[in-house]
Design a protein around this nucleic acid. Structure first.
Lengths: 331, 331
DNA sequence: ATGAAAGCGCTAACAC
DNA sequence: GTGTTAGCGCTTTCAT
């Protein structure tokens, strides 16, 4: 049984496609379709449960009502939760979300980006690794609606929803210095992204402010391609160096670290202090204690959607840069 | 600057659309387009960075290369991780994922379902709350490609990727009985879903097998609309009843429970034992100790995609029911 | 108050 | 080897 089209309905009812279309799009009155005709059509449509083909609509209207959500990993709780919030906000406006995980990989981001564009998404919300700045700049120049969040490239002027990085990280590290930490390691995923560099700078700032000499050996970078193993290896190194605190640049590696401390290492749990950029619920009770920098995910989602909508609706170029304040959670 | 269409290219190059289309779809040789022409076209296309409009293609071909992923909540780690695995598997086959979270709400599932169908998704992977069995049966009768996972409705014959529920839950509860638990509560989200009922039955089976009298008062149902608050209230009740163990029917409420025990209740942490259907990494070290039933998410994702592909490709009706074995994790 | 027809961008059967 | 053309399902201008 093939799906009914507007053409079939027109034939079966003896009206023209035009009339059917007007009625279906609530333009019946505006277009002076008689009450009676409207009733007949609506009644019939309900009876046969006719569903218009959105693809045909999209082709005609040049609008798909679909937004692309492009992030490093949709299963990372940070991106998953923001994604969920965005999904809900967009849903209210009749939009759907199509997702793509880039794994921080250049080629994958590039491919996903062009696929989304080919699929005529109406806009993009993206935590980019800025691998192909050229393509992004081209899209941006063509006024393609995009909102970037979580990450920034200073060489690229675009709509950004960001969170302050350097100062909050400095303040968080300061907290554990206040509590007595003196030998503080840092663990980060590959800081190819500007925001991560800023977080690392925040760590350095805190040390400098307290006249703690920076030991480059205590700054460890994990391999994004093998996050689990690599994080554990680096932790092992830091612990062997007898650090009394470790700062992490995102929640994913903090979570691995907590797991590792409790299940593999099983020592120093109460002696060592953690600092994590990004919060997780489990930090409320996990040991080692974690001072964390919590990003305001509701606000991030809200602004991302608001600004994207603004960009989609406006004809002239909109460029906004929003910098939100994260919340320092002491524990 | 409007986007170039195949028509523009044809005009600019002096060939017909057909020729361009053939070459672009790698049918140049097959259709006897001369090498020279092919080169000219490919070269030009590269130069102007022409991108075919997938919407137009979809309309023509009746294929969108999009799969809908419909789950209660994409930010729930269980669904997020399976979603990610599915995304990767589908990506290899040139498919994209469009997501929808139903929040276990009837109307939302219905709406999302029809939106996805209207958008001509090529198939659906869905953890349904089976709110509108009629619509599902209609779709199924029309041979619309769908694979159901995580949940089952015994009245609905469809493709299912499931995990055994009753026996694993019984075995998990048995573990804590073996460790001395005698007064065991149960906390569940609203068991409108058959699989949840089975999990609860598993709990009952374990009690029966050990001649522990079932106390219906110790079976508590949380309100899905207010998971956080409601879970905490029910926990409070169970603790006041001096249970020495609690079984949970999914990981979400177990996670809330661990959080609540550690941050609000702050007592009985080492005395009480937890059982959780679904695993979480943090169970490896969290207190109270958790015996968990870990679902094989890689397998679930793999089967879901494989079977969906099979259904899409085959013309005749395919109905498969796969029941996977979860893993009991003792701690 | 309603309908005819063009066109969105693409594919493919058929013609030359 | 390459081009003409119809058509996927819908919207909308212009006629009547």
């Amino acid at each position: 049984m093939k799906k009914k089209s507007i053409n079939d309905i027109a034939k079966e009812l003896g009206f023209s496609k035009t009339t059917i279309s007007f009625v279906l799009n609530n333009k019946g009155d505006e277009k002076n379709i008689s009450k009676r005709t409207q009733e007949i059509i609506l009644e019939y449509v309900r009876k046969v449960n006719y569903q218009p083909n959105q693809i045909a609509k999209s082709l005609k209207n040049g609008k798909t009502n679909t937004i692309g959500y492009l992030v490093p990993d949709i299963s990372n709780p940070f991106y998953a939760r923001i994604g969920r919030l965005i999904e809900d906000l967009l849903w209210e406006q009749g939009y759907h979300l199509i997702i793509g995980s880039t794994d921080e990989k250049q080629e994958k981001e590039d491919l996903l980006l062009s696929m989304f564009v080919n699929r005529q998404v109406d806009g993009l919300i993206i935590a980019s690794c800025f691998s192909d700045l050229h393509r992004l700049k081209t899209l941006s120049a063509q006024n393609f609606p995009m909102v970037f969040f979580d990450r920034e490239d200073p060489d690229f002027n675009a709509n950004y929803i960001l969170v302050e990085n350097q100062k909050p990280m400095r303040e968080a590290v300061q907290k554990i210095i206040d509590k007595g930490a003196t030998k503080i390691g840092l663990l980060s995923i590959t800081p190819n992204i500007y925001s991560l560099k800023l977080r690392i700078n925040g760590y350095k700032d805190a040390l400098a402010k307290n006249s703690i000499k920076l030991d480059e050996n205590l700054i460890r970078i994990v391999d994004n391609n093998d996050l689990q193993e690599s994080t554990q290896a680096q932790l092992n190194y830091l612990m062997s160096q007898k650090v009394d605190a470790i700062a992490f640049t995102n929640n994913q590696i903090t979570a691995i670290a907590i797991w590792w401390m409790n299940t593999i290492h099983k020592k120093d749990l109460s002696e060592i202090k953690f600092v994590s950029f990004d919060n997780l619920d489990l930090f409320d009770y996990s040991i080692p204690r974690v001072v964390s920098v919590a990003q305001p995910i509701e606000e991030i989602a809200k602004y991302a959607v608001d600004i994207l909508k603004e960009v989609i609706q406006s004809n002239d170029r909109v460029i906004k840069r929003i910098e939100l304040k994260p919340k320092l959670i002491e524990r």
